[in-house]
Nucleic acid binder design. Structure first.
Length: 477
DNA sequence: ATGTGC
């Protein structure tokens, strides 16, 4: 599909419907980010998504959009459940409920410098990472795995892995409803059994970060962030379990699409009506994987908390835990009417407005304070905390990270792992990696400029920047 | 992203 962009505002570009598109495409980006997009498969994917049955408003792209499996990464698409709307595993992604959790620590950057060695060595010892299996929690069997799949972080806390306040600060208060472990294949379960509490590889990490700049004093205070404060960010997902569930359901939906008379321009857009048996089965399995991902982050956070308590005498307080790969059933006003939608966010972060009932209890009634939004940067660069805003377009969603600019292969060719490690250490960043190649694939040059992405997200009215964080120690898969 | 690839 040939894609033509029309500038609507400095931060919003439109793709008019052609060739079976049911709605326009809308790309939130700045002029600075746009050249990267002009010759990119990602925009064709934005247009392809606009052909899905039941799609409403627009196929949205966030400022960090890039090419993905079928759907672009950095894409948001909502379908109307009661008007034939579909759900698609490709619109969620392989790493179901991949997301970020951020803890604050009552410790300043200068004090942390005195204990950086023991803390980083402690984290390196307790945080499983890299390809393959082995997590901090060895499950007793399928029954206990199913308890994780139903209960998420809540089950982990019930079993002593965390405190009740952690759950107040988790999306969905720690567990997605309607998880259906019976829809999780034996193969997916086998893969999940041995990986609970592990980072994985790729761009997943655990970082010790320092608040570099406060960008909104009032919001930062509400979120408990101050300049030079130490934080811990964890970015990971549902490991082999989520991957297997996605694979299982892509194959299943490809088989049943003809029976629903659904035709899509790319077979990687395989989908089924939300209300169909296949749609419901996927949503049940997806919710189970989402709970696994949250329990995964809970376990890693608890392991990090114990290291901090032992080595610094200070604990970690959870600021928030939020996914950026998930489909959710939500109610939004479309064409002046409240509709039940299936909102797919793939490489896009939910950003609820101030006063929303799903906000943490202690933030819910604070005027002007929206949902904490956690945006991980690439290795060695900044990460951001944002806040959801009133009236955000794109069904209360924003970007999820810097977005790749080079493929893994290109990145690995551009720099040697050992050299990159020295460079990071020279910048004052303590590195505890798993493999040299893994490091090279994540070199900062392989990603877009996170500062430009955040500027575009703010300019487009998707979210409000609160604080900029920089890494002081990184544990990578 | 992933027991990395039909």
């Amino acid at each position: 599909m040939a894609v033509k962009l029309v500038e609507e505002t400095p931060y919003r570009f439109r793709i008019d419907p052609v060739d079976g598109m049911r709605v326009p495409g809308v790309v939130f980006a700045s002029r600075r980010l746009l050249p990267d997009l002009s010759n990119d498969q990602a925009l064709t994917q934005v247009a392809n998504v606009a052909t899905l049955p039941g799609v409403v408003e627009a196929s949205y792209a966030m400022p960090d959009v890039h090419w993905g499996y079928g759907f672009p990464i950095g894409g948001v698409c909502a379908t109307d459940i009661d008007r034939g709307g579909v759900v698609s595993p490709g619109g969620v992604g392989f790493d179901i409920s991949c997301g970020v959790r951020l803890y604050t620590c009552d410790l300043d950057r200068s004090r942390f410098a005195e204990v950086v060695g023991p803390v980083m060595d402690g984290l390196a010892r307790v945080i499983p990472r890299g390809m393959g299996t082995g997590g901090v929690w060895t499950l007793s069997g399928r029954d206990q795995l199913d308890a994780v799949l139903r209960g998420g972080s809540r089950y982990a806390v019930e079993r002593g892995h965390g405190v009740e306040r952690d759950l107040d600060r988790c999306e969905d208060f720690g567990a997605v409803a309607d998880a259906d472990p019976s829809q999780v294949s034996e193969r997916a379960a086998q893969r999940g059994m041995k990986s609970l509490g592990s980072l994985g590889s790729g761009n997943h990490f655990l970082e010790v970060q320092a608040v570099d700049a406060v960008l909104d004093e009032r919001l930062a205070e509400a979120f408990g962030l101050r300049v030079n404060q130490i934080c811990v960010m964890i970015h990971c997902g549902s490991r082999g379990l989520g991957h297997q569930i996605c694979s299982d359901f892509v194959a299943r939906m490809e088989r049943v699409m003809p029976a629903y008379d659904i035709k899509v321009p790319d077979r990687q857009l395989a989908c089924a009506p939300v209300t169909s048996p296949e749609g419901q089965a996927y949503l049940g399995a997806m919710a189970a994987a989402a709970n696994y991902a949250r329990a995964n982050r809970q376990m890693l956070g608890q392991a990090a908390r114990q290291v901090f308590e032992k080595e610094t005498g200070r604990t970690l307080d959870l600021l928030y835990d939020i996914s950026h790969n998930l489909a959710k059933i939500e109610t939004h006003v479309v064409d002046g009417e409240e509709r039940r939608l299936c909102v797919h966010r793939k490489g896009a972060t939910r950003a609820l407005p101030p006063g929303h009932p799903d906000l943490p209890p202690d933030l819910r009634d604070v005027p002007g304070v929206g949902q904490p939004v956690l945006i991980p940067g690439s290795m060695g660069t900044a990460s951001y905390v944002l806040s959801g805003v009133e009236g955000g377009p794109a069904f209360a969603s924003t970007c999820h990270g810097a977005g790749r600019a080079l493929s893994r292969h290109q990145a690995a060719r551009s720099v040697r792992g050992a050299e990159l490690r020295r460079r990071l250490e020279a910048q004052g960043i303590a590195v505890r990696g798993a493999s040299a190649r893994g490091l090279a694939e994540e070199t900062p040059e392989a990603y877009k400029d996170i500062d430009a992405v955040i500027e575009a997200a703010a300019g487009a009215g998707l979210a409000r920047p609160v604080a900029r964080l920089v890494p002081v120690g990184v544990v990578k898969g």
